[in-house]
Amino acid sequence: MIIRTKNLNKVYRTDEVQTTALNDLSIEINQGEFVSIMGPSGCGKSTLMNILGMIDSPSSGEYFFMENEVGGLSERKRSDVRKNNLGFVFQSFNLIDELTVFENVELPMMYTKVPSAERKKRTEALLEEMNMMHRRNHFPQQLSGGQQQRVAVARAIVNNPKLILADEPTGNLDSANGDDVMKILADLNSKGTTIVMVTHSQYCAEFGNRIIRLLDGQVVTENVVRQFL
């Protein structure tokens, strides 16, 4: 089991209002699964993703990543777990504007201290695979949305993460580009990478093998997707 949460709660407090984003949420995700998380705006999808991605911590409850409790780890420890095990794909791509395509993809390996020659080899191989090699020295603003998301995906997987967290990866893309990205993710999953994806699109959700629906911070249904691939 790669992910197991037990009674996760996340409460946001402002001066007057208290909002419960996650409410006693318990889920389990196995190694090699491709799970899609769906639900209306404000149901807690992004909060869940942030907690699963260890860039936010729960108000209460437990989060076991690869059977280790990580909910209560320090920022430094979480950062270590994150860089060695996780890859992120965002709706708004979140490439660093000051870095070239090549450098964006290379960046996670610098944080994991991969030697320079190895970095070059892996980056080039991935860019080749994503069909982005001819754009290696361009800056993000010089690319189309689809190209940017392919770079972002390349960056997410360059460290061979065990888990990819994708937050509406196709949200800013047209359907052709969206399809491309979904196929890449499905392909990765077929090679063994666990994927957790938030999406509004039923079409995209069905690329996965399980759909978790959230409402008001709770799981309402879980269904197994009919495998058609």
Partner: peptide, 9 residues
């Protein structure tokens, strides 16, 4: 982004 990718403070 950098923090998400594993950069620490």
């Amino acid at each position: 982004i950098r923090k998400t990718l594993g950069s620490n403070k």
